[in-house]
Simulated scan of single mutants.
Amino acid sequence: MKIAALPHVDEHTTIVAAEPAAVWRGIDDVLDRSFASDRTARYARLLGCADRTVSGPRPVAEGSRFPGLRVAGARPGRELVLVGRHHFSTYALVFRLDEAGPGRTLLRAETRARFPGPVGRLYRRLVIGTGGHAAFVRRLLSAVRRGAE
C-alpha cells in the first residue's frame, strides 16, 4: 500500500518531555495495551479487517500486527507506519518523532484513509465526522506521553 496515495485525514501532535527512545517504547506499550483486547479483536472481525490478532515481533517492528493494523515500516525513535484495511476503508496511521529541544520530543500522528463507495462515505461520517477518531488519536498520544515521561 502506498501511504502517500491515501488522502490526508488529520494530524495530531504533542510534546513529550522525554528522549525519542523513551517515546518509542511508550508507543510500543500503548499499542499493545490499546489493541490487544478481545473487544478490539471482535471489532476488527466485525469490520472485516485483514489483521485480526496480535502477532509478530515485539518490541514493535515491521511485521508486527494488531487487530486492524500491521506495521508496514519502523525506524525506531523516528517513524512507525501502521496500515490496515476493512470493508469500508483503507488507512494508515503514521507516528513521527522529532527532537523538540533537550530531553523533549515532538510526537505526531498522521492519519490517511480512503473510504470507497456510499457505505465508505457513511463510515467516514460516523468515525471522522463525529470526532471519534480524533478523540481516539489524542488519547493514544496522551497515553504515550504519560508513559514516556
Rank of each mutant, 00 (worst) to 15 (best):
Arg65Thr: 13
Ala41Asp: 12
Leu80Ala: 13
Gly77Gln: 14
Tyr91Ser: 03
Ala36Asp: 15
Ala61Trp: 14
Val127Tyr: 07
Arg39Trp: 05
Glu62Pro: 12
Ser64Thr: 15
Ala61Gly: 10
Glu110Lys: 00
Arg139Trp: 07
Ala22Lys: 14
Leu47Cys: 08
Arg125Ser: 15
Phe136Met: 08
Glu79Gly: 06
Leu6Asn: 00
Val16His: 00
Val144Thr: 07
Glu110Ser: 01
Arg121Tyr: 05
Leu140Val: 02
Arg108Met: 01
Arg108Gln: 02
Lys2Asn: 15
Gly131Glu: 09
Gly103Phe: 13
Ala135Cys: 12
His87Asp: 15
Ser34Val: 04
Arg78Ile: 12
Tyr123Asn: 03
Gly129Thr: 09
Arg52Asn: 14
Thr90Gln: 09
Gly147Ala: 07
Arg75Leu: 12
Glu79Ser: 03
Val137Arg: 02
Phe35Tyr: 12
Leu106Val: 07
Phe66Gln: 03
Ala113Trp: 02
His8Arg: 01
Ala92Gln: 03
His12Tyr: 04
Glu11Trp: 01
Ile27Trp: 09
Leu107Ala: 04
Ala5Lys: 10
Arg121Ser: 05
Leu106Tyr: 07
Glu149Leu: 06
Phe35Leu: 11
Leu140Ala: 01
Lys2His: 13
His133Cys: 00
Pro102Ala: 15
Ser142Arg: 11
Phe95Leu: 04
Gly147Glu: 02
Thr111Gly: 06
Pro7Asp: 01
Ala72Arg: 05
Phe136Thr: 02
Gly63Glu: 10
Arg138Leu: 08
Leu82Lys: 00
Ala4Arg: 15
Thr90Arg: 12
Ala135Lys: 12
Glu79Val: 09
Ala41Thr: 14
His133Thr: 02
Gly117Lys: 05
Gly147His: 06
Val119Leu: 14
Glu11Asp: 03
Ala4Trp: 13
Ala21Asp: 13
Ala109Leu: 00
His133Trp: 03
Ala100Gly: 15
Arg33Gln: 09
Pro7Arg: 01
Thr40Leu: 11
Ala44Asp: 07
Ser142Gln: 11
Arg25Ser: 15
Gly120Ala: 06
Leu93Pro: 03
Arg75Ser: 10
Tyr43Glu: 07
Ala74Phe: 08
Pro20Gln: 08
Arg112Gln: 06
Leu31Gly: 00
Gly147Phe: 02
Ile15Met: 05
Ala44Lys: 06
Pro118Ala: 11
Leu141Asp: 00
Ala134Val: 06
Gly84Ile: 02
Gly48Val: 07
Cys49Val: 09
Arg145Phe: 05
Val137Trp: 01
Gly73Val: 04
Arg108Cys: 03
Ser64Ile: 09
Arg124Cys: 09
Asp32Trp: 13
Leu47Ile: 09
Leu6Lys: 00
Gly117Pro: 04
Thr111Pro: 04
Ala109Asn: 00
Asp98Ala: 15
Trp24Glu: 07
Val23Tyr: 05
Pro76Glu: 11
Arg52Tyr: 11
Ala100Tyr: 14
Arg45Gln: 12
Pro20Tyr: 05
Ile3Thr: 09
Thr90Tyr: 04
Arg85Ile: 08
Thr40Asn: 09
Lys2Pro: 11
Tyr123Pro: 01
Thr111His: 04
Val81Leu: 10
Asp32Gln: 13
Phe66Val: 04
Phe115Thr: 02
Arg146Val: 13
Leu46Pro: 03
Val94Thr: 14
Leu69Phe: 15
Val94Tyr: 02
Arg121Lys: 07
Phe35Cys: 04
Arg52Met: 15
Asp98Ser: 14
Leu31Ser: 08
